[in-house]
């Protein structure tokens, strides 16, 4: 095995975004990545390519172009209809070997995190996980990838100097989505499913089930609404559940609420419960003992709703709402539904 040389590396050009789609629709993370890819490609004076693997995905090419792709690279084949890790990875590997992108980015989603590590091994390239920042080093032209590790306790900068492509998965909802520009022009390149990849799949999807509601895990939720003693009982948590349902979030609880038997331990956030790091952490009637704070303080945005403006959590919060949970939450729900 050899490490690529300078001349090998020079053959690699362009920034690829691996699109994610479901039921014929592109996912938001794809647009976010296209926005980031545009910035990187401009810095490298190269192009943004959006890779569409799947069945019926040709139809999505125009949308990718409207969102900053210069090229839509399409592999449209009924055998790619379901996500079969091995098949998709082998197909993508062939595309990479043929077209030699310099940078490949993909959403750090369940699919992306299953697919790309496999491709990184097959293409002998470096892969940085779950990035929250991507930049080009102005001196060397190398991709600088920043990512949280150790559960958000540190931020690491990682690069892959000698191997190509440089690969990264990127955390959804971190990068800004570019507005669509319907007048943008781009090329569409279609590739067949390579014969070498048409081997009988060793995995088949028997059933694909979409979740209805509930069941969002604390650890995975982007929006967590937590209740403490201030909720005064089980009824309070029903209100929280309705709120969580409306915003697509999960319900958490402080130790006090769990000890009171109002909600199950599985919802407890804090030192003897779970550690969470959502985009929005909204604590209702939670005073914010240090044992609770250690479990949620690295959330992006913290909102505290409490009658007592001096509660420790009100000091830590980005938004400290002084008021009654039972008035504030219904008002917010009205407002969310209204607009």
């Amino acid at each position: 095995m050899h490490t690529p040389t300078e001349t090998d590396r020079a053959q690699y050009r362009n920034v690829w975004v691996i699109a994610e789609h479901r039921d014929g629709k592109l996912k938001g993370v794809t647009f976010e990545l296209l926005g980031a890819a545009r910035r990187l490609a401009d810095a490298r004076q190269s192009e943004v390519w959006c890779v569409l693997l799947g069945s019926g995905v040709r139809a999505l090419a125009g949308e990718c172009i409207a969102r900053q792709a210069d090229v839509a690279l399409v592999m449209d084949d009924p055998r790619l209809a379901e996500f079969v890790d091995e098949l998709h990875a082998d197909a993508l590997t062939k595309l990479i070997e043929k077209h030699k992108p310099e940078i490949v980015v993909c959403g750090a989603t369940a699919r992306g995190r299953a697919l790309i590590p496999r491709v990184a091994v097959l293409t002998n390239s470096g892969l940085t996980a779950d990035c929250t920042g991507l930049d080009i080093d102005p001196e060397t032209g190398v991709l600088l990838q920043t990512r949280p590790a150790f559960g958000g306790n540190i931020i690491a900068t990682i690069k892959s100097v000698s191997h190509r492509p440089q690969m990264a998965t990127v955390r959804p909802r971190v990068m800004a989505e570019p507005e669509p520009q319907t007048a943008r022009k781009g090329r569409v390149i279609s590739e067949p499913l390579p014969t070498a990849v048409q081997h009988a799949a060793r995995m088949k999807v028997l059933q694909a089930i979409t979740n209805t509601a509930e069941g969002i895990h604390l650890a995975d939720a982007d929006f967590i609404i937590t209740g403490g003693r201030g909720l005064r009982g089980k009824k309070g948590f029903e209100l929280l559940r309705r709120f969580a349902h409306l915003v697509g979030g999960a319900v958490g609880a402080s130790r006090a609420a769990v000890d009171a038997g109002w909600i199950d331990y599985a919802h407890q956030v804090g030192q003897t419960g779970q550690t969470v790091q959502p985009k929005v952490y909204m604590a209702c009637g939670v005073s914010g003992q240090i044992q609770h704070l250690v479990g949620m303080q690295s959330s992006d945005i913290i909102i505290a709703v409490n009658k007592d403006p001096n509660a420790p959590l009100m000091k830590l919060a980005d938004f400290a709402v002084v008021g009654d949970v039972f008035e504030i939450l219904p008002a917010m729900m009205d407002e969310i539904r209204r607009v």
Binding site: N153, I154, K159
Partner: peptide, 14 residues
Amino acid sequence: SPTRVVKINPPPPR
């Protein structure tokens, strides 16, 4: 190892 950790920082303060 193709990747290198080049820098480690504390997360930005709140």
